[in-house]
Design a protein around this nucleic acid. Sequence first.
DNA 1: GCACCAGGTATACTTTAGGATACAGGTATC
DNA 2: GATACCTGTATCCTAAAGTATACCTGGTGC
Lengths: 118, 118
Amino acid sequence: MKDKRNIKENERFRVKIRAIQDTMFVLGGKWRLPVILSIYSGNKRFNDIAASIPEMTNRVLSKELKHLEENRLINRTIIPDYPVRIEYTITPYCLSTQSVAEPMEKWGKNHIKMLKSQ
Amino acid sequence: MKDKRNIKENERFRVKIRAIQDTMFVLGGKWRLPVILSIYSGNKRFNDIAASIPEMTNRVLSKELKHLEENRLINRTIIPDYPVRIEYTITPYCLSTQSVAEPMEKWGKNHIKMLKSQ
DNA sequence: GCACCAGGTATACTTTAGGATACAGGTATC
DNA sequence: GATACCTGTATCCTAAAGTATACCTGGTGC
């Protein structure tokens, strides 16, 4: 009886950590959420995004954009103007990342405060 | 006027991404939150934690425990028994990581569902 | 023609995360 | 005396993340 419960509980635990690791895989890393936030706040073009996060090199930006596109968090659209422009926009699905980004922002701010108060 | 607002907004944006990056630094990575969760769910000893997450090697566990201790998320106490035991417990401050871990768990579960439904 | 811009890619590098394996040092047990 | 358990550490390695710098292509403006 107790064993059965432990097995079930362990199963729940493993599902939990797998979910967290998946999130980490998709949204983890130093630049992913910042890039999403930058696009969300209105930057559509490569150089605009790059300018909004000057510490990130354009090679990294290029890679992150690809990763985000592959995970359906952003759209890359080619505008056939002269000259051709490329616009990045977040997908409706991407809005769900807010539920992760916001608590992380809060926690980070609080953590800095905590460190300072010591 | 408009410039002033943009500068202010930009400042807010930079504060935001710094906070997220700090959180990533402390809680990011494949194993950090799982280790916290394992301790939270009752595992106090090195081998118990290791057994609860068999995919992680003990070298990685050792490193993560050190990192978590340095960031005041767990306590390491030596129990002077024979043989000497060592117990890891989460700090009160560590409870605040729930506010990050839970949304990540939810998002990860939803993400998997999203991928499957395509 | 020439310089310049947008939106990247190429190349080469360093750093960090994470993994595989072994085993140490003390206690306890057979 | 040999062996096993506990809590890790040591050594070596690979892969991924991130950095630095240069360069490309196809326009535009002068």
